[in-house]
């Protein structure tokens, strides 16, 4: 059985020293090993941005696509081969700006994939512009007077879109994050895991220390029931979205693949492409 080391490769990430993304990479590698995967059973599909490079830093099948489109590519992979474990990943710009439409609909669709967002509240690769996750008043290259747009709440959006698994974590909490990713992989449906991943170069506000002070861990609430949708929404709002842990899980709704009529449990990619003459004749007969 593969250990987390088998999910490492020899590529040196191009992330800045101290970037939160390193821990997320490690957590994915550990979670993959912990749930018993072999590298070839995992496909990591990522978008564009600093964090989008992650698919190249994990020893597995990796597909680094185009900006904002990690989710539709990942869903295509899963539909074609449901035997693969599919993780989609990218930054907050990728998932909540250019790719927001796909995020909402991937949540609604509920294919069995795990979406890990590396949320640093800023655009790093393009060198420091505002993101939909930036706080109001946040000064960046593109908002020199401070952002005058409302901060987007991905957790609330996910809940309202009918998400079946919503979690949030902090890159410094390697143990908690690894566990959430494992739970996300095991969840039969779409799992969203938003991870605070500080940008040490361009975001001088939302720093490691800032997160430590502001995060509200669900561990503080022993009676919290993640199957209670209303409670989940309340808690997200009460904490202004700074909540970490498994916030919501619906284990009763089936995944998209399980609801497609006639869709087999084996990978579609392994099925025979040929028709019998009889099947073909039947198709043709309705045009007579």
């Amino acid at each position: 059985m593969a250990t987390f080391k088998e999910f490492r490769n020899n590529v040196k990430p191009n992330w800045c020293p101290g970037c939160g993304d390193f821990s997320i990479q490690a957590a994915i590698q550990r979670a993959a090993a912990n749930v018993g995967l072999e590298p070839e059973q995992l496909a990591v599909i990522s978008g564009i941005g600093c964090s989008g490079r992650i698919s190249g830093y994990i020893n597995a099948y990796g597909f680094h696509g185009i900006h904002g489109r990690a989710l539709p590519i990942a869903q295509g992979v899963k539909l074609a081969n449901r035997e693969l474990t599919v993780i989609a990943s990218g930054g907050d710009g990728d998932g909540f700006a250019i790719g927001m439409g796909h995020t909402v609909h991937a949540i609604r669709r509920n294919l069995n994939i795990t979406y890990i967002v590396m949320d640093n509240q800023i655009y790093g690769l393009t060198k420091g512009q505002t993101s939909p996750r930036s706080a109001e008043g946040f000064k960046t290259k593109s908002t020199p007077e401070g952002s005058i747009e409302t901060t987007l709440s991905p957790l609330e959006i996910a809940m309202s879109a009918g998400a079946t698994f919503v979690a949030q974590s902090f890159s410094s909490d390697l143990k908690g994050l690894t566990s959430l990713i494992e739970q996300g992989i095991k969840h039969e449906g779409f799992s969203l895991i938003n991870v605070f991943s500080p940008c040490v170069t361009f975001n001088k506000i939302n720093t490691y220390d800032w997160f430590k002070e502001n995060i509200v861990s669900l561990d503080q609430f022993p009676d919290y029931d993640p199957s209670d949708r209303v409670a989940a929404m309340n808690k997200i709002m009460e904490t202004n979205g700074m909540l970490t842990g498994l916030i919501y899980q619906n284990t009763t709704r089936k995944s998209y693949e399980d609801m497609i009529v006639g869709f087999k449990p084996e990978a579609l990619a392994k099925q025979d492409l040929a028709l019998t003459q009889e099947q073909f004749d039947q198709l043709v007969s309705e045009f007579k």
Partner: peptide, 11 residues
């Protein structure tokens, strides 16, 4: 892009 993902995975 979904079609690209599915073709990549072999369908």
């Amino acid at each position: 892009t979904m079609a690209i993902g599915a073709n990549y995975a072999g369908v």
